[in-house]
Design a protein around this nucleic acid. Sequence first.
RNA 1: GGGCGGGUCACCUAGAGGCCGGGUGGCGGACUGCAGAUCCGCAUACGCGGGUUCAAAUCCCGCCCCGCCCUCCA
Length: 489
Amino acid sequence: MLRIYNTLTRKKEPFIPMEEGKVKMYVCGMTTYSDAHIGHARTYVAFDIIRRYLEYKGYEVLYIQNITDIDDKIINAANEANMDPLEYSAYYAERCLEDMRKLGIRDASLYPKATEHIDDMIKLIEKLIEKGYAYVADGDVYFSVERFQEYGKLSKQDMKQIKAGARIQPGEKKRKPEDFALWKAAKPGEPKWRSPWGEGRPGWHIECSVMSSRYLGIPFDIHGGGQDLIFPHHENEIAQSEAAYGKNFVNYWLHSGMLKVRGEKMSKSLGNIINVRDALKQWDAEVLRFFFASYHYRSPADFGEDALKNAENAVKRLRIAREKLAEMAGEDENFDENKLDEKEKEYLAAIKELRTKFEEAMDDDFNTPKALETLFDFVRKTNKFLMEKEKPDEKLCRYALNEFLRVANVLTLLQEEEKRMDEDAIRRLGEKYGVIKEKIEDVIEGLLAIRRKAREAKEYELADAIRDALREAGIEIEDIGKETKWRII
RNA sequence: GGGCGGGUCACCUAGAGGCCGGGUGGCGGACUGCAGAUCCGCAUACGCGGGUUCAAAUCCCGCCCCGCCCUCCA
């Protein structure tokens, strides 16, 4: 039974979707006015894993992630760059999605954009005005917070606190400081849309109320985002949606912890924002994903050299185990349990345990660090099994590999092979030793043949030179007796 | 001030009242021409001070420290 921590109740609750077998989830996406940073990556990897686990459990998941493509910051940034704001945000939206794909995050079911839903926003605002929850003030429209009794229920703040923190910015025409904008009258030169209150553009919060209910209905199952969005954004979404529709908006609110950099908050003023693009120059996408998965999604995470280095080594251990298993694995996984000997039966038990322990961990509010433990436990048992068993059952090995990959995939690990070897360097090396072949694999084999002869002749300098050069190029070799295996590291 | 989450071995993380955490790194052993990989073993831990209990990293109280939010934020 999956249990999920709900920010609304501050408790772990059994997860029961609205519709059996289906999960409708919405995660607040990016405001696209610059490249995605590793904080975004953390959040979207976390929700990607959540989505994958739900699918692993057999749910059909409809996963909506919005793109905020109109907003003050976009307009300002576009003006500075001397570009049209909508072109500007479209450009960054594309780049951000590209970054997420490079990270290995699966696409959401849909990435709706704010500017494509202006009509629906206007309708919702009209409804709020009709019902007396919103008012027009000189071309602006504001939500009247005190009209919504439950305001503050998500962030656990009472009205007194909210009022104490609220301010009226210059140019705003709201009646109460705690009110927030649903619609903003256009200033000269800004992108604008026609509305019953004059030309203008939507406030930030309204888009999520509109797009979530448009694609998922209301209420829907899961609404996620970074912890920094709890207040005011998600609080405001609740106010808008529940005031307008008179019913519960979301069943489970999930919030991911913030990412720090070397113990400090990531912020423009500290100048320590790390873009996904830059992070990918230094670290493998899979290493970054492992790093994120090694923290529980609600805990703060700290992006530091040591932790990344640890992750890099840990990932290597997983990859090697995968390779070793793959070498022994046959075509299909339909092994015959009666043909297994004692050792194999013992290993079969370990394979089955992988799944149960993994699920136990993930069922507990997506405890990915705990889930990783089960992977490493399995790796140790696999290595031991392959070491002790001369000719392991091929089908059993295929089954083990498949099971391993199935759970690893949920954690976004051991996915499609990324080319990490430097083919050019290997070919140059081949030329040096007179090995010229079409296929890179043949070049490597040829080099290894030369090395084998060298070893037999006890010409260890040459043997080691080839080994070191291959290692430089991303190929690691392993001598087992007379035989030599190689793998991409 | 209000809300939330933390302080666990050299490093990164998980954690149920009693027994176990895992990864990285280190040390020793097996294997090896060497290296790597792997296996086995070893070490280092629960911010501070009280309390509850036969038993506390875990529950309670107080304190110190850190991070996040409190109308820009993922």
